[in-house]
């Protein structure tokens, strides 16, 4: 009788231990898989166009050879939710392409024009791939020390002064669109800033773009603290317009 009880107790312990191990293993694998899967995708499919390891380009030649943004500090730059959404359904961020000078048509006697046919769409990932890649990108935290933590004050964004500053006082509109079709085409559009980028990154990049990308064609505008606050909050407050087919017309 005693031997039977001991055997049953032993069996129960073994079943419990194996069961617990399986549960832990399963939990561990579902937590760890996206990052390792994403890393594998980055290393096999993304590295030809993006730098997934630093440092940033320090010569014009290497800068011009880049086909997409550096990703080695993606974890301190992008919002993960936006990455997942964008990687599955990519939309152009820089209207004239990542390197406008590779897509510019020059005609005698007329203004330069963007060769829209030359622009190549970004590869779209599956939902699962997008989640894995986004999770992996969030672990890329080079430049963390360059990001000013909690950079923004509590004063709310001022839509009017923000746009005045962006357009008239700081001249950012020359290169950046604040809505589709309005603004310069060589820089990234800024109407998805809030969805796309981390607030502290926006502030820190505006303050010193060259510390992130020495050859960037975004100049250092030498903005004072007040301008940095107003511009960052303004950009973060903008929203992409709703797609036309989802708009409710009121005739």
């Amino acid at each position: 009788m005693t031997g039977g009880r001991t055997a049953r107790a032993g069996l129960a312990t073994v079943v419990f231990t194996v069961g617990l191990s399986m549960v832990l293993l399963l939990a561990g694998s579902t937590w760890a898989a996206p990052v390792s899967d994403g890393m594998a995708i980055l290393k096999s499919r993304c590295f030809t166009c993006h730098a997934i390891k630093g440092p940033a380009a320090t010569t014009l030649k290497s800068f011009s050879a880049r086909k997409g943004p550096d990703l080695f500090y993606a974890g301190v730059k992008y919002n993960e939710e936006w990455l997942i959404k964008w990687l599955a359904r990519p939309e152009p961020i820089r209207p004239a392409g990542f390197r406008y000078f590779k897509n510019t048509v020059v005609t005698d006697g007329a203004d330069d024009a963007v060769d829209w046919d030359a622009l190549k769409a970004h590869v779209a990932l599956t939902e699962a791939e997008a989640e894995s890649v986004a999770a992996a990108l969030m672990t890329f935290r080079t430049y963390e020390e360059k990001i000013k933590k909690n950079a923004l004050t509590e004063a709310p964004a001022d839509a009017f002064m923000g746009e005045m500053n962006f357009d008239k006082f700081s001249g950012c509109l020359a290169c950046h669109e604040i809505e589709p079709g309005y603004g310069g085409v060589t820089g990234p559009e800024v109407y998805t800033t809030g969805e796309r980028l981390q607030p502290d990154f926006v502030y820190s990049y505006l303050k010193d773009p060259q510390s992130f990308d020495p050859k960037s064609f975004m100049p250092n505008k030498e903005l004072g603290e007040n301008f940095l606050q107003v511009l960052t909050k303004y950009m973060l407050s903008l929203e992409a317009p709703e797609p036309e087919d989802e708009e409710e017309g009121d005739d």
Binding site: A96, Y100, F101, T104, V106, D108, A110, D111, D112, A113, V114, L173, A174, C175, E177, Y182, G183, G184, V185, T186, F217
Partner: peptide
């Protein structure tokens, strides 16, 4: 991007 490839002032950003 602003002054144009040939320098005549008509870069791709000038429209707005």
């Amino acid at each position: 991007q602003c002054h144009g490839v040939n320098g005549a002032g008509g870069g791709v950003n000038t429209e707005s």
